[in-house]
Write a protein that binds this DNA or RNA. Structure first.
Length: 563
RNA sequence: GCGCUUGUAGCUCAGUCGGAUAGAGCGUUGGAUUCCGGUUCCAAAGGCCGGGGGUUCGAAUCCUCCCAAGCGCGCCA
């Protein structure tokens, strides 16, 4: 439709003396229904070009359009309004054909082709296997997975990847934590000590690292290890055996948690690969050749000042161990080398200042870093009884993602992470999440879908059917036409959410669908109406159910038949 | 101190590429209902869009300064 109007207006403008070469038309959906279905601000934009009042320009364009004239099967009315807007109203016929399109597309409705032929890699979660996924990881996981879904619906071929590092200091500490617990289980007479800050002291085995992991899961891993391998594991030297055991066990748990949320990764990328292939060291050499790296105090520094930072940063420590920046640059270079047109990273707010170094580093190596898009999300606060729930990873008082799902369910968990813009702080109200009423937005959407399905079942019981053709032109009620207008926006809504990497835009839209449907439901009946009208309305209800279901499936949320 | 993010109704938040009278849910108040699912619907009240300045036909939106909150600022990741 927009393309059609675009062409019409451009040719009308041609007859009025042409437009600047780089001029493009802008359309928008007016907030106020009195302003039609599509508005164009062309006249205001061209005020200077024509040196005329916008209203006058708009009127001239309208006259030229009416002389052509516009296809009455698409546009029923053109209006000049306000400071010079041109408002177009869709004809009923156009709306009905749009409805027919929705029904025909069925579960495919909402797909579009903007990403056709392109490949995208979405990297998310990427938590090192040091413990169970927490609520914070949950927001990351759900955002990443949903962004991947959105991209798929716009035609991209998408891969989901999890990046991890099992060789760093964190993992060493993890292994030592397990070993200490193991040793204490083998010989309970071993001494203990207290670690932590004042008021938050924990009693741990003597050999427990100062910054060790305090979670109960560590003890459980030690117990299992003792049971399976016996008490004679070597506790001397590095804690490799314990680290491996912990890693395997924790990864298994992480994958189970992800699966429970409906998330399936395509690949797990181990940071070690970048060392095995010597990649990271090659990059250091390249940076040196580019005069972007130098040696100082025994370390290798990256000239981040060249990227606009205040200070240079260390790339390789004097110990010879790289900082995370180096493998991260290598990893992103690797992603781009794999030929992806779009590389999406999902990061928590704590990365906000550091990812630009990585992007600029990759760019300096000659890659097209514009293909990298970083989604930063702010932290999550759980609210219970109107108060924030205290969480600390160190003290192991965090709430795990599994616990959250146990409490409120998988659908609610996903929806709550998706209902707000990623870059605002999220308040996750547990009491609201558990409530099965209209106060709970997920419930409202699912309920709307269940009710549609119920109405259709009931209508079939009384002898109606939505099979075969129906005379859609019987749909003339304002609530019916309005519902169709909302329904046909699904593809655009998905595209927009995908383009901005903001799934909440789709959540917001689906809520509008549910509202438009309940308005229709309140004003138009099916059972008890004349059969042809009932059939037409069943078609409309079917389409509304389809749109809700498709939209929910993009969000990874179920659309129940009954509740 | 520096960087990034945020500041919109009592609360939680939407607000498209800069568009017309700034929206929704909750809460509050008042209504409706011979109900295809009352787990519903309708309506009202409620706003200096953090504050000042600027850009322009037009600003919640862009620029600038100030104020406030969050996150970060390590040879941690």
């Amino acid at each position: 439709m927009q393309d059609y109007l675009n062409d019409c207006i451009l040719s009308a403008l041609e007859s009025l003396g042409g437009v600047p070469a780089d001029f493009t038309l802008e359309f928008q959906q007016p907030a106020n229904p009195d302003h039609g279905d599509l508005a164009c601000n062309v006249a205001m934009k061209l005020e200077k070009h024509f040196r005329k009042a916008p209203r006058q320009i708009a009127e001239e364009i309208r006259d030229a359009l009416e002389a052509q004239p516009l296809d009455p099967d698409r546009i029923s009315e053109v209006q000049v309004a306000g400071p010079g807007f041109m408002n177009f109203r869709f004809s009923d016929k156009y709306l009905l054909s749009a409805l027919a399109d929705i029904l025909e597309a069925g579960e495919k409705f909402g797909h579009s082709g903007t990403g056709e032929g392109k490949r995208a890699l979405v990297e998310f979660v990427s938590a090192n296997p040091t413990g169970p996924l927490t609520v914070g990881h949950g927001r990351n996981a759900v955002l990443g997975d949903t962004i991947a879904n959105l991209l798929q619906w716009t035609g991209y071929e998408v891969e989901r990847e999890y990046y991890f590092n099992d060789a760093g200091r964190q993992m060493r500490v993890l292994g030592e934590s397990v070993r200490a617990r193991y040793m204490a289980q083998v010989d309970p007479t071993l001494g203990t000590k207290e670690i932590g800050e004042d008021g938050e002291l924990s009693t741990v085995p003597e050999s427990f690292p100062e910054d060790g992991y305090l979670g109960e899961y560590i003890d459980e891993i030690a117990t299992r290890l003792l049971k399976e391998k016996g008490p004679d594991l070597s506790t001397e030297g590095d804690a490799d055996v314990f680290k491996k055991a912990a890693e395997g066990s924790i990864f298994k748990e992480i994958e189970a948690t992800l699966e429970r949320m409906g998330i399936q990764m395509n690949s797990f990328f181990n940071e070690r690969t970048l060392y095995d292939s010597n990649r990271v060291w090659d990059i250091v050499e390249q940076f040196k050749e580019l005069d972007l790296a130098y040696e100082k105090d025994g370390a290798t520094w990256l000239k981040t000042t060249a990227f606009g930072k205040e200070q240079d940063t260390v790339l390789v420590k004097s110990s010879g161990e790289p900082t995370y920046r180096l493998p991260d640059i290598g990893y992103h270079a690797d992603k781009l080398e794999r030929g992806f047109d779009l590389v999406v990273d999902v990061f928590g707010a704590d990365h906000i200042a550091t990812f630009p170094d990585v992007v600029e580093g990759v760019r300096a190596l000659g890659f097209d870093a514009d293909r990298i898009e970083v989604v930063i999300y702010q932290f999550v606060t759980l609210i219970r009884g109107g108060r924030p729930v205290k969480m600390s990873t160190r003290k192991a008082t965090f709430v795990t993602l599994d616990e959250l799902m146990d409490e409120v369910g998988e659908d609610v968990t996903r929806y709550f992470f998706l209902m707000r813009s990623p870059n605002t702080h999220l308040e996750f109200d547990l009491d609201l999440a558990k409530e099965a009423s209209d106060k709970n937005p997920v419930f409202y959407l699912q309920y709307a879908h269940a009710r549609i399905r119920s109405i259709l079942r009931k209508a079939i019981e009384v002898g109606f059917s939505h099979e075969g053709d129906a005379d859609l032109s019987l749909l003339q009620h304002e609530a019916e036409l309005n519902l169709i207008k909302e329904l046909m926006r699904l593809p655009e809504s998905i595209e927009r959410a995908a383009a901005h990497k903001e799934p909440h835009r789709l959540s917001t839209y689906l809520r509008e669908i549910a509202v438009a449907f309940t308005q229709f439901y309140g004003k138009c009946r099916i059972i008890g109406e004349e059969e042809n009208l009932a059939r037409a309305r069943m078609k409309l209800a079917l389409a509304a159910g389809q749109v809700l279901k498709n939209g929910l499936s993009v969000l990874g949320i179920s659309a129940p038949e009954k509740m």
